[in-house]
Structure formats: structure tokens, C-alpha cells
Amino acid sequence: MTRSRPFSTRIPVVLGIPALFGIAFLVIPLLGLLVRAPWGSLITHLHEPGVWEALRLSLLCATLATLVSVAFGVPLAWALARSEIPGRALIRALVTVPLVLPPVVGGVALLLVLGRRGLVGQWLDQWFGISLPFSTTAVVLAESFVAMPFLVLSVEGALRGADRRYDEAAATLGASSWLTFRRVTLPLVAPGVAAGAVLAWARALGEFGATITFAGNFPGTTQTMPLAVYVALETSPDAAIVLSLLLLAVSVGVLVALRHRWVPTA
């Protein structure tokens, strides 16, 4: 008995009490959501117009944003971890800026560059007749902007942790660096890529500030769940709670399904 519960596992009071407060602080608001939910009218609220549209849009845009992040973020992470490009430290610092930047500011920045009068946007508009703001594409771009750094940092960490001697072994077998990346490096860091993708997806799903600034709030094209929740809160708080519950259920469901991928099971 004493052997299975060694003395060192006792939590000191000084740590235990703040830890309890920490748990309470994180969990009680979610419980509040459950307690205050209008369970009786749940079905009615779920069938209100726009609910499933918003959910579909959220899932679609978050998934597309994740794909964009993987497509561009994995090569970027590789370059940061493995190559000898000059100014690597600076690039890494720049990559992490969207992590700490308020999303609204990110949205404004996107608007200034890709808006119809923006630095790049005006040429897209003139030459190709493409206007990005206030479209579903804009939602994906806004979400990618805030989500990609999570993926880059996660994959870069995995690449740094991976044994580079496997790459050397592949090279001595005649593999080019691209083949080595595809057949050796990438499979070895796959758990890191998966973890990064889950983080990016979760971040994209919850994105609000950059989306509403750059893509606006149009039901059916740019109104994702967080936006729908915000709008509903003004008119029908019960609907907002139901939407929140739905978002909570979906994100928790996905994270639990992928949990073993990115949280090492103790």
C-alpha cells in the first residue's frame, strides 16, 4: 500500500489550492453553459434557420484552413528546422507574431493587403477580377493566418526532435533530399504534424476577430459558428447557448477522437 502510493505524490497545499481554483475556473463556465441550456427548446433552436449552415461553414473553413496550414506550414517548418537559410531566427520570430497578435489586428492587416484597395488586392481585382474580402475564401484566409503558426511551431519542434541521422542514412542509400523528406523525415514526424494540424484546426474553428474583420458576417457565406453565437447573443440568448453547446460538442468530440495523437497518454 505504501509502496504503491509513495510519499512524493502528496500534493503540497500551496500547489493544491491554486490548482483547484485553476480547474474550477476552466470548468465552471462550461458547466454554466450546460446548466443554463434551454434543454426543453433545444430541438427547436437547433432547427432555426442558419444553425446548420453556420456549422457546415465552420467545419468546412476550419478544415480548409488546416489544409492550407499543412501545405505551406510543413515546408516552412522544415526550412526553419533543417536548412541553413540566413535570418532564420528573424523568420521564426515573424512566424510567431500572429500567435500573440490580437486577431482583429490580423483581420485589419489582411484587409489592408488583400482588400479591394489593398496592396495586393487592387491588382487581384484589376487583373483577375478577384475580390477576396467578405467571401468564404476570406474566412479560410483569416483562419489560416491565425492557425498556421500553431502548426509551424509544432512541426518544427518535431523536426528538431527527430534524429537527423535517419536522413543521413537515406542519403547514403542514394535518396535525394526530396525523397528523403517524403519517405523518411515526414513519416518520422507524422505525430508532430498531426498534433499541429489538430491545434490549427481547433484554433481555426474558434476564430472570430480576424474573420469578422476581414470576411464580415454574412449568413451562408462568412458567418461561422462563433459569429453566429455572437449575433444570437444580442437577439436570443437561448439560441446563443444552444449554438455554443453545439460548437463545444463538436470541438470536444474531435479533440477526444484525436487525443492519443497529440497528448501523450500517461
Binding site: D163, E168, A169, A170, T172, L173, A175, S176, R183, L188
Partner: peptide
């Protein structure tokens, strides 16, 4: 990868 050289590494490094 351009060298006609085969290497057996110390801890083998099998993928």
C-alpha cells in the same frame, strides 16, 4: 547520395 558508397551505421538506423 551521389557516392557509390554503402554504410552500416553503428545503431543501424533502420527506418
Amino acid at each position: 547520395e551521389q557516392r557509390p558508397v554503402g554504410v552500416v551505421f553503428q545503431d543501424y538506423l533502420l527506418f
